[in-house]
Amino acid sequence: MAEATGIKGGRIKVMLGDDATPTVYAVPCGLTQRSLTFNKGLEEFQLPDCDDPDQVSWMGRDATSLSMSIGGETVIAEESIETWLDAVESEDSTPIKVVAEFPAKTITWTGKAHVESLEVTGINNRRATGTVSLQSDGKMTRVVS
């Protein structure tokens, strides 16, 4: 049996871009956990049995949309807090790049996303932490190299 080739969490990078031409992407300092969720919107319809219309119908589904959600946990770092605040306060979506670096290949998604939420938590005598949530805004282009 061949073992799976996995990667450590730090090999998944969530990068925010700026307004420069070309866009410059950087990983905000402090991310300790990140999650990627790929969503497909579906529309349901019944598939009737033409030979026996009284038969209970199976459900069919058509794909109607695709989206990507990104969640993360972070230490609230002085180096990146304003980057997160600027993105969440902006009415425009932010250029993003998500990179998953495997030993034999790299998968990169590039597009735009809204920073939907930034939650900051401060507990006495502990390091301030936070969570972030991003939602894709349009197509996320995937490239494997």
Score class of each variant (00 low, 15 high):
Glu3Trp: 09
Ala4Lys: 13
Ala4Trp: 12
Lys8Arg: 09
Lys8Ala: 11
Lys8Met: 06
Gly10Asn: 07
Arg11His: 13
Arg11Met: 13
Ile12Glu: 02
Ile12Asn: 06
Val14Arg: 03
Leu16Val: 04
Gly17Trp: 00
Ala20Cys: 11
Pro22Thr: 11
Val24Glu: 14
Tyr25Asn: 01
Ala26Arg: 15
Val27Met: 04
Pro28Asp: 07
Gly30Asp: 00
Leu31Tyr: 05
Thr32Pro: 12
Thr32Asn: 06
Gln33Ser: 13
Arg34Leu: 14
Arg34Ala: 14
Ser35Gly: 11
Thr37Ile: 12
Phe38Cys: 00
Phe38Lys: 05
Asn39Gly: 08
Lys40Ile: 10
Lys40Phe: 13
Gly41Tyr: 02
Leu42Ile: 07
Glu43Met: 10
Leu47Gln: 11
Pro48Gly: 02
Pro48Asp: 00
Cys50Ala: 06
Asp52Ser: 07
Pro53Glu: 03
Pro53Cys: 08
Val56Arg: 15
Met59Asn: 14
Gly60Pro: 07
Arg61Val: 09
Arg61Pro: 06
Asp62Pro: 04
Ser67Glu: 04
Gly71Arg: 03
Glu73Phe: 12
Thr74Tyr: 10
Ile76Cys: 10
Ala77Met: 04
Glu78Ala: 12
Glu78Ser: 13
Thr83Gly: 08
Leu85Thr: 09
Ala87Gly: 00
Val88Pro: 04
Val88Gln: 03
Ser90Met: 08
Glu91Met: 14
Glu91Tyr: 13
Asp92Ala: 10
Ser93Ala: 05
Ile96Leu: 01
Lys97Trp: 03
Lys97Cys: 02
Glu101Ala: 07
Phe102Trp: 12
Phe102Lys: 05
Ala104Thr: 15
Lys105Ala: 11
Thr108Tyr: 02
Trp109Phe: 01
Thr110Pro: 01
Gly111Met: 02
Lys112Ala: 02
Ala113Gln: 04
His114Thr: 12
Val115Gly: 00
Val115Met: 06
Glu116Ser: 09
Glu116Gly: 08
Ser117Phe: 09
Leu118Asp: 07
Thr121Met: 09
Gly122Cys: 06
Asn125Val: 06
Asn125Thr: 11
Arg126Gln: 15
Ala128Phe: 06
Thr131Arg: 11
Thr131Phe: 03
Val132Pro: 01
Leu134Phe: 05
Ser136Glu: 02
Asp137Ala: 13
Asp137Lys: 02
Lys139Trp: 04
Val143Phe: 04
Val143Thr: 10
Val144Arg: 10
Ser145Tyr: 11
